[in-house]
Design a protein around this nucleic acid. Structure first.
Lengths: 225, 225
DNA sequence: TATGTTAAACTGACTGGTCAGTATATTACT
DNA sequence: AGTAATATACTGACCAGTCAGTTTAACATA
């Protein structure tokens, strides 16, 4: 039965992440994690020298997944069109798809969870969260900046990076919304609404928005973790 | 020094709220609150039978302030114009003003904080948070619904309540943003951007958005709590 | 005398963390 | 092949400290 420590470690982190999203880090005891993961107390401390080390490991794994998802989605968007504005729009469409399929909107965002317990963590954790914001800015904001150079925006003085920040904010807001109302569909609705706003801003003429698929049928590729 | 129990109670709640926003409720000990409020341990339990009672009192006070602010701002907006769309836009403009003046964007939203520790609280607390969302929906969503009946929206199938929800979400997102980057101006920027989107959606023709004041000069009235 | 406040001592549950020891599987030795 | 050695994975009891909450006795104000 024994012999794969890596798997156990992941199980511990899975259990921890789920509980942190539900009650916060401080209120999640080592005992509760250990029990949920189906291991003993000693095993926990064998894998993690302290509870704080677990906190860091969990958020680092989360940040890495996040990075992977963003990069993957944008790469896919880029392979589906050549115009930067389309890249941005398809990127958001793919994101919408991910939320629709995984229903991740109910769980919430670990960055936000940590942020509301910021006093418990060190600067390294803060840096991870800020890093996630910066990646988003580079990825989506950069595309919108390029889009602005080609397409006229209906609002003058449009700052593409403010748009990107706001998109990130919409996601965060939708997470809280989805959690509070136990309704994962909010995630999808809000992302879609934001994309519609972008289309309006750039005068992309989809005369009837309708409820049809907003992403080319071509992409059946599974979304990453 | 002694003699006003109500004031002491408020001081306790102030200290608690500040600490909860910084590290979350679970990580905020009674001792720490008591020390920050400058009172003794006995006094704390004289005013609050338990820590949970404090939690409820703090969120109830917060919900009441929130309700007061929303109602106040919308009432003021209504006194400044007669069109429901203008009511909605001025409402958001006034909100922007509040955030600009108070710098409340750095602190964060107590609803969100509680939401990310939801497992610790009972249904009454959940109900308060949901109630705040519903008030927002009624207040802003109702206006936008009325606006849609008079003004054509550039996007068909526009649901005014989705717009209202999304505005709430933008606020929540901006709170997290402001906290994480220690930049209260995000609050203002995001609200303004959202309002611009609404103007675009309803084709309100401000040909040059510019940086001029977006709210009539007439209102010097102080914003509520 | 009512209410508000203090200070300190105490309880019991629970916390993060330690530790001595056990089990399992791989490798090394003969 | 058989056995000893070893690194990794895991266990459960235990410890010291912190937590929320209680109790008690005194004191201040109005």
């Amino acid at each position: 039965m024994p012999r794969d420590g890596a798997k156990t470690k992941q199980r511990i982190m899975d259990a921890a992440q789920a509980q942190v999203l539900e009650r916060g880090f401080a209120a999640t005891s080592v005992d509760a994690i250990q029990e949920a993961a189906g291991i003993s107390r000693g095993t926990f401390f064998y894998h993690f020298p302290s509870k704080d080390d677990l906190a860091r490991a969990v958020i680092e794994r989360y940040a890495e997944e996040d990075r992977g998802l963003v990069n993957d989605l944008m790469a896919r968007a880029e392979s589906l069109a050549s115009d930067p504005l389309q890249h941005a729009l398809i990127f958001l469409g793919l994101l919408e798809e991910v939320f629709r399929e995984t229903g991740a909107g109910e769980a919430g965002c670990l960055f936000a969870s940590y942020s509301y317990e910021a006093g418990l963590f060190d600067e390294r954790t803060d840096a991870l969260i800020i890093g996630s914001i910066e990646l988003w800015r580079r990825t989506l904001g950069g595309k919108l900046e390029a889009a602005l150079e080609r397409h006229p925006a209906k609002l003058p003085d449009t700052d593409p990076y403010v748009l990107a920040d706001m998109a990130y904010g919409v996601l965060q807001g939708a997470f809280i919304f989805g959690r509070t109302l136990s309704d994962p569909s909010v995630m999808v609705t809000h992302v879609r609404q934001f994309r519609s706003f972008l289309e309006l801003l750039f005068e992309v003429g989809l005369p009837t928005e309708s409820t049809a698929s907003t992403v080319p049928d071509a992409l059946e590729r599974k979304s990453s973790p």
